[in-house]
Design a protein around this nucleic acid. Sequence first.
DNA 1: CCGATATCTGTACAGGTATGCAGATATCTA
DNA 2: TAGATATCTGCATACCTGTACAGATATCGG
Lengths: 122, 122
Amino acid sequence: MPVDECEVKKVDAGRVAAIRGLIDAADATRLAELFKLLGDPTRARILYALLEAGEMCVCDIGETVEIPESTASHALRLLRTAGIVRNRRDGRMVHYSLDDAHVRMLLDLSLQHLRHDQGSGQ
Amino acid sequence: MPVDECEVKKVDAGRVAAIRGLIDAADATRLAELFKLLGDPTRARILYALLEAGEMCVCDIGETVEIPESTASHALRLLRTAGIVRNRRDGRMVHYSLDDAHVRMLLDLSLQHLRHDQGSGQ
DNA sequence: CCGATATCTGTACAGGTATGCAGATATCTA
DNA sequence: TAGATATCTGCATACCTGTACAGATATCGG
């Protein structure tokens, strides 16, 4: 058998190894978790609403996104646990707002993506 | 508090209506679909690999991400359908690369987020 | 045309998860 | 303290989706 150790016909084994080292699976998984949180229509609507409004109570969020408040609460908990939003208690109301500069930039960037062109890149 | 038309105890009905008009549900859903595609560890690893490598064939992608090539092919199809990656046929091999400037920026931004230089911006 | 290589597709299964109702908890007002 | 308001949590369910095996398709070398 030729040059390779045993089996495969790798096109560019060196590059494969190099790229593999740049982003390990754990990092990619963490990044995916972040995007996954933004990848739900309900949570996305909540986040874009907060991006515009700055701060909203659960009840107004539910009204804005047109979902029951319990659903909003569930969604907000996930976002808060991930450090994407923060909450501020004011009496019996809890106000939520974005709490991550990078996420805010991601949301802005994605809005540009939406408003610019949707189908074809350049 | 001004009296509402009928039912609820809305805290700020005007703001709710205003925010609701800024991003409608359809837009948010489309944005969520984009993030959802980035929100899978396998697809994320593929995208970050392409971000670094520029262009890779399916076989090297599978090797880099350590998945069967059929899994890579499935993932790449979703990404291609969404306009996130493009493919270039070269003989019996197909080379994939990123095909969306905004997505490339999203990936870069998320890498910054990962590297945790948070605190800039507001 | 034939065999080999590279990629794609059909399909089935497993695991995850978004959702909302009902009830629990916290806070305010009187 | 009692009652009302705002939010949270437990749970059940239905839906979605990532995965990979096996086979189909496309392309190349000769």
